[in-house]
């Protein structure tokens, strides 16, 4: 295993452990940890399993192995960003709804307290 392989193995282990710790401390929901953990496991095996990396590089028409890892990393980041944009859109809608209904309730409550 080359120096780059060792670095990517270490990074994948650190990423997995860090995500796990975030979930343990309840800083990250299990739902959002899934993608990161899958990515860490994928990078880990791809770094160790040289034959697989070679085959995938050949399949996608790549010229060197690190670029294959970066290629999949890039795809992963696009997918996860799109996923978060969808989640943020849903949350924005929910926050707007809650705020609107809460504002009306507060206004009605203040009116009743005055009467």
């Amino acid at each position: 295993m080359g120096r780059l392989g060792i670095i990517t193995v270490c990074l994948s282990v650190i990423l997995f452990a860090y995500v796990f710790e975030l979930v343990r401390r309840r800083h990250l929901n299990e739902e959002y940890s899934f993608g990161w953990m899958v990515a860490a496991v994928f990078i880990f095996f791809l770094s160790l399993w040289r034959d697989l990396l070679e085959k995938i590089t050949y399949m996608i028409g790549g010229t060197n192995y690190p670029s294959t890892i970066f290629f999949f990393g890039f795809i992963f980041l696009i997918i996860i960003n799109l996923h978060f944009s969808i989640r943020i859109s849903a949350l924005t809608k929910q926050v707007r709804r809650l705020t609107q209904k809460l504002s009306i309730l507060v206004s009605d409550l203040e009116e009743k307290e005055k009467e």
């Binding site: 707007r96 705020t99 609107q100 809460l102 504002s103 009306i104 507060v106």
Partner: peptide
């Protein structure tokens, strides 16, 4: 007049929609 206050700025359309919800109620 009757006042409904959003705790933070939601934008023009959302403010109108709050009025619609109130009016519907």
């Amino acid at each position: 007049v009757k006042v409904i206050s959003h705790p933070f700025n939601l934008g023009y359309g959302a403010a109108l929609q709050t009025g619609y919800i109130y009016s519907h109620q």
